[in-house]
């Protein structure tokens, strides 16, 4: 079961040397482990994204460790300075060990 995710770049057009916003949005429950199931009354075990890695052409440039305090369907937005055409890849793992990867292409306008 792949987790739905999206990698977005803002603004849409940029040149080499511009700083753009790269955001990762994930459809994820981000369970805290403190919430109770309404029917059975048992605690729902914690299940959240704990590791996010941004890399450009294979070179990692940002790593994020996150905890259960992030909202459901979290968003991670960082900035990135465009150096050349290539591909940004984002790999993220949750506490159940499910690894996912998503990416987007960087195509600077001359």
């Amino acid at each position: 079961m792949a987790t739905k995710s999206l990698v977005k770049i803002k603004p849409k057009t940029y040149k080499v040397g511009d700083v753009v916003e790269v955001s990762l949005m994930v459809m994820h429950p981000m369970e805290t482990g403190l919430r109770k199931d309404k029917e059975s009354g048992k605690l729902i075990p914690a299940h959240y994204i704990n590791d996010v890695k941004f890399s450009f052409n294979g070179t990692p440039f940002t790593t994020i460790k996150s905890w259960e305090s992030l909202s459901t369907n979290p968003v991670y937005t960082i900035s990135y300075k465009v150096s050349e055409a290539g591909e940004i890849k984002v790999a993220f793992t949750d506490t159940k060990g499910e690894a996912n990867e998503n990416g987007t292409k960087i195509t600077p306008k001359a």
Partner: peptide, 29 residues
């Protein structure tokens, strides 16, 4: 950090000079 949550840690972001500017945004509970 969310100072009064049971786990105060929300996110630890490790940046490098390749980021261009130091910024991070997210949504917390």
């Amino acid at each position: 950090f969310a100072t009064k949550n049971s786990n105060v840690r929300c996110a630890d972001v490790m940046l490098t000079p390749a980021n261009g500017t130091a910024s991070f945004s997210t949504r917390v509970k």
